[in-house]
Design a protein around this nucleic acid. Structure first.
Length: 473
RNA sequence: GGCCCCAUCGUCUAGAGGCCUAGGACACUACCCUCUCAAGGUAGAGACACGGGUUCGAAUCCCGUUGGGGCUGCCA
């Protein structure tokens, strides 16, 4: 049975698509999927001066990447002016709107003279002004009166009309302001459920008044979810905070991990549960359980989630997800041989990264013709311990004479050597690792050496020896 | 300033009056495991903002205070 529930996600393309928007979209999508209703995507681009097509594309690709699919749209408000014009005509005809040519300065000036609360004072309300090129259309708030917002999350919120200005609904250039366009579209698109961020709560009574003035009989359900905040507990802003969904994708986050983390910001399935599949989210998500207070977007925790999701990937999936990140390196050509080597080391890398982008750094030594050992590392690991020189030179000898250059044999031979000099393996592996990989940390050493191959291994041991000062005899 | 919203560990949260000496997760500390690093395991530290009510009983209900946030645009 097809439900009549219709939700919409209505971003404005004025900047990067940030995680707060992604979460709002996700919540809308979940209730639509759960009810078998429709998810409508609408681009709110009525402000020509601030919109850009690239942002629209960014929003679309980010939603697609996250797996948030839309059933209708994207509609663009810029293509629907006809509709707004009709609504405006009706509001004027029925005496619910009037033209006003007051400038901001004039309004502020009157506030100063009169004292009291700032805002528009209704100066033109009863003047029957004709439209001029400088005038904007204002909505006539019924006075006195009050409007109650029945919010699914916050309960009934009462707004006294005393505190509502006659707000502008059409700019002097003729384009509608967002509350108007919003309401007209929501009516036209038969949106039955409006779930959006809490910042919109104060404008909701204005929207309700418009709905009523335009003859809407049954108002949509409203639900205002808490905003996402930064470390200073301010609302996440695309200007101030770098939290673009696209950035996280490029850092090596998995969409599945991000969605799972995002859904938990303001909602919990209850109990100790945190990890869910999309299907489980659809089944469990419940607007009545959504929190009331703002949530901090904690990248650390999301990264942990990402690690968990990465480890759950199959070996092939992991390799494929890593490819775009490998391609950013000049040492990666994507040859069959390279792919083979990477596929072999991949499972060992998979359990060590929490971002896909970290993989490159862990395997680069296998593909670079030369590795660089920083002077810091050369000092601290190779030169500082007098044993290091001896180890490098002994190990070169041992590896040279190894009949089979496999991880197992390498491990055995190295262990026997450790016993012979009465030194624990963990001490011995350090200089070898630095000599071969240029790093103190990385995938298990002997598997790495096997994949590096005998020739490169011996060469790098010689180079390291020279670095320490062993004469090559 | 005005209007509105919110308030459990540092963070995200569980908690729908007795199940709470408040549970989980991230981060943090210690130990174990271990060829490094991770992962994993064990343990630890860490919260009901405050004050009044209501009730036999309150983290949970009410009021106030304090604190935080949002809105207050010819932005959305």
């Amino acid at each position: 049975m097809k439900s009549t529930l219709r939700v919409r996600f209505a971003p404005s393309p004025t900047g990067y698509f940030h995680v707060g928007g992604a979460r709002t979209a996700l919540y809308n999508w979940l209730i639509a999927r759960k009810a078998g209703g429709s998810f409508v995507l609408r681009i709110e681009d009525t402000d020509e001066a601030r919109n850009a097509e690239e942002w629209v594309e960014g929003i679309l690709s980010a939603l697609t990447w996250l797996g948030i699919s839309w059933d209708e749209g994207p509609y663009r408000q810029s293509e629907r002016s006809e509709l707004y014009a009709r609504a405006v005509a009706r509001l004027i005809d029925e005496g619910n709107a009037y033209w006003c040519g007051c400038t901001r300065d004039e309004i502020d000036q009157r506030v100063k003279e009169r004292g009291g609360p700032p805002g528009y004072d209704g100066y033109c309300r009863n003047r029957n002004n004709p439209r001029t090129p400088d005038s904007a259309l204002r909505f006539k708030i019924p006075r006195p009166g009050q409007t109650v917002v029945h919010d699914k999350i916050r309960g009934d919120v009462v707004f006294d009309h005393e505190n509502l200005d006659d707000f502008i609904i059409v700019k002097s250039n003729g384009s509608p302001l967002f509350v108007l366009a919003n309401v007209v579209d929501d009516m036209d698109m038969k949106i039955s459920y409006i779930l959006r961020a809490e910042e919109h709560l104060p404008t909701t009574p204005k929207a309700i008044l418009l709905f009523q003035a335009l003859g809407m009989e049954e108002l949509p359900v409203f639900a205002h979810v808490p905003v996402l905040v930064n470390a200073k507990r301010q609302k996440l802003s695309k200007r101030r905070d770098r939290v673009a969904v696209e950035d996280y994708r490029e850092m090596g986050y998995l969409a599945s991990a991000m969605v799972n983390y995002l859904v938990l910001l303001g909602w919990s399935p209850g109990g100790d549960r945190e990890f869910m599949t999309i299907e489980e989210m659809i089944e469990l998500f419940d607007i009545d359980q959504v929190n009331h207070s703002p949530a901090f977007f904690d990248e650390k925790k999301m990264q942990h989630f990402n690690g968990v999701y990465i480890r759950e990937l199959s070996a092939d999936e992991f390799v494929n997800y890593c490819l775009p990140f490998l391609e950013k390196n000049d040492w990666w050509q994507g040859s069959v041989k390279q792919l083979e080597v990477f596929s072999k080391i991949a499972p060992l890398v998979q359990e060590r990264v929490s971002l896909l982008s970290e993989a490159s750094g862990m395997v680069g030594f296998l593909f670079q013709s030369d590795i660089e050992i920083s002077s810091d590392l050369a000092d601290s690991v190779l030169r500082k311990d007098p044993k290091s020189a001896q180890i490098i030179s002994d190990i070169s000898e041992i590896y040279l004479n190894l009949s089979e250059f496999k991880a197992e044999q390498l491990h055995d031979a190295t262990r026997r050597y450790c016993d012979s000099i009465d030194t624990p393996l963990r001490k011995v592996q350090a200089p070898i690792r630095v000599a071969l990989t240029g790093s103190k940390v990385g995938p298990p050493l002997f598997e790495s050496i096997e994949l590096l191959g005998k020739k490169a291994t011996l060469q790098r041991l010689v180079s390291a020896g020279e670095l320490i000062g062993i004469r090559n005899t």
